[in-house]
Amino acid sequence: MTRDVPHTTSDGGLTYVSRYTTVQRINHWVTAALFTMLTLSGLSLFHPSLFFLTGLFGGGPSTRAIHPWFGVVLFLSFLMLFFRFWSLNLPNRDDIEWSKRIGDVVSNRHDRLPELGKYNAGQKIVFWGQSILITCMFLSGLVIWDQYFGTYTSIEPKRVALLIHSLAALCAILIIFVHVYAGIWIKGTGRAMMRGNVTGGWAYRHHRKWLRKEAAAHGIASEAEIYAAHHPAPATKAEPPAK
């Protein structure tokens, strides 16, 4: 066991496996916040019935002005996520098996699903889908960012870029919809991104291969061990020297 927490025997309480580091979690939530603001500001221009959303950003002109800047920061933030996670999202054979059993997936029938590594095919689609779409939105976004890049292209490429941008945004928003819903539907997932760990049972149910690997490499922590790691016992005071 390589974990730097005091080793106690299992007390029958829950077990935990760590899934995301603090930096990874901050990176994820910064990206999520930016994506949300981009969705709100972008959709306000997408359809007249959503124009009222410009009110959230101080009116029409300021929404128009700030949206691309959010986009630039999102792109950088997502780039960091990308380099952290791409290798974990490479497809493998289990993904094919899992995808074939998508009916069982949506029916919560885990007894019929293959054991999986850290991510399932759905999560990988979210990852690669967002990677491609955010790149598309970034590039097309630059073409239609008139204030700074208006003179680099003629009108026809701008029309194409606008169509690509809104199409890509639509697909990305739909993917994020599914991503958020999965977080609500699959109980116990939220703490992975909020607290950084998941219960052993969650890992056993959804990503058993990953759990086995973690158990072998880092061990699994008990509740008492996690508690001890976060609340170090106060150092005992040295006895005053006898007079």
């Binding site: 029958g12 919560n108 699959i186 052993g200 969650w202 149910r205 086995r212 699994i220």
Partner: peptide, 15 residues
């Protein structure tokens, strides 16, 4: 899709 006791116990055995 909730984690049940069976899952938690299995994880504990792995621990």
């Amino acid at each position: 899709d909730e984690v049940d006791d069976h899952d938690e116990m299995a994880a504990e055995r792995m621990k």
